[in-house]
Simulated assay, not measured.
Amino acid sequence: MEDNLYSIGKVEEICKITKKALRYYDKKDILSPDKVANESGYRYYSKKTLLSVPMIKYYKQSGFKLEEMRAFLKGTTYDFFHKSFTRKIDELKALEREINLKIRSVKDWDDLIVEAQMVIENNVSDVAIKYIDNRTLTFLCQDFKYDYMDSIINIGFTNYIDSINNAITGPVIICFPSFKDKMNGKCNKMKIMQETILKCKEELSIEFGGWMAAACYHIGSHETINETYKKIKKWTEEHGYICSEESYERYVTDYWTTKNEDKFVTEILIRISRKK
């Protein structure tokens, strides 16, 4: 200390802030020393100047950049404070929405990985009747050429989502107009569907679910998925159910997650009703 001035080392000790940071703040005209010794170049700070450090830490905690807090530290009007704080609140709310979107995207994908792990570990491959919860999805009708990788990692659908300023999450679901045509290699149309994170316009949405389905997981390559269709067809006939024409393939894990096709997990859903 020199005549009630604190050396940069003492400021570091008292305020728990590095010398590097103090020098950077000086360079940016945020916090400058009160005195710089001519010969040694040592920096000295007054107690009043030190009291700006907690303010800098608080503004930094609140998300303000150094350039934004410069006016606050030098002194300004209440109106300037209010306008600056209002802009920062709007900016942080937008950032919050973006972070929440990312959290949901990762969480939904992780849920699918856990589901696939449990299906594979327990070899869940029996046909079951289940209720499909109703949800609203966005969709795009496309041609189908039995190129599963191109259909699931779908450039056209990705571009479509971008064009409507939305984001998607959860599993890709593809609806085929006739599961019998699908099995016989005659299907040439499909409807790709996925849940959007942001609210979608009604004309861009489709209702999915709200009905009972014969469901069965297919473990392995999509090229052998007909085996599971045959299993569902046989099971429903034996148990007195009528299958609708449409089928849905819900891709739990696929090319997005693994290169090992033996580890692909696809859930086939066919809407059913009881024979009268």
Results as ranks from 00 to 15, higher is better:
81 F>E: 05
114 V>Q: 07
225 I>V: 14
83 K>D: 12
43 R>Y: 01
13 E>K: 15
267 E>L: 10
207 E>M: 14
197 I>M: 13
71 A>R: 15
17 I>E: 01
90 D>P: 06
31 L>W: 08
165 N>Q: 13
15 C>Q: 03
214 A>G: 04
162 D>L: 10
127 V>E: 02
109 W>L: 14
233 K>D: 00
257 T>L: 13
76 T>V: 09
85 F>N: 09
76 T>N: 01
9 G>D: 03
205 S>A: 15
83 K>G: 02
103 I>T: 05
226 N>T: 11
161 I>W: 09
91 E>N: 11
18 T>W: 01
15 C>P: 03
90 D>A: 13
229 Y>S: 03
57 K>V: 04
184 N>I: 07
34 D>P: 07
199 K>E: 15
83 K>A: 09
160 Y>R: 10
3 D>R: 14
166 N>S: 15
232 I>S: 06
12 E>T: 11
60 K>V: 04
162 D>R: 15
37 A>I: 09
229 Y>T: 02
99 I>G: 01
224 T>W: 10
149 M>V: 15
220 G>E: 06
32 S>F: 00
233 K>E: 02
174 I>R: 09
70 R>P: 01
56 I>S: 03
254 D>C: 15
102 K>H: 10
179 F>M: 00
41 G>I: 02
45 Y>K: 05
250 R>H: 07
183 M>Q: 12
206 I>K: 06
239 H>R: 11
121 E>W: 02
89 I>N: 03
256 W>G: 15
69 M>D: 01
96 E>T: 12
267 E>R: 13
26 D>N: 09
262 D>C: 00
274 R>V: 05
130 K>C: 02
43 R>T: 08
27 K>R: 02
37 A>V: 04
113 I>T: 08
137 L>Y: 15
34 D>S: 12
135 R>L: 11
160 Y>N: 03
83 K>R: 10
191 K>V: 14
41 G>Q: 04
195 E>A: 14
1 M>Q: 09
247 S>N: 03
80 F>E: 15
36 V>D: 02
86 T>I: 12
256 W>E: 10
177 P>Y: 04
251 Y>R: 05
201 K>F: 06
121 E>H: 08
191 K>M: 14
273 S>I: 09
38 N>V: 09
54 P>R: 07
63 G>W: 10
109 W>H: 13
230 K>P: 00
216 C>R: 02
238 E>R: 06
165 N>D: 12
7 S>R: 10
1 M>E: 06
66 L>Y: 10
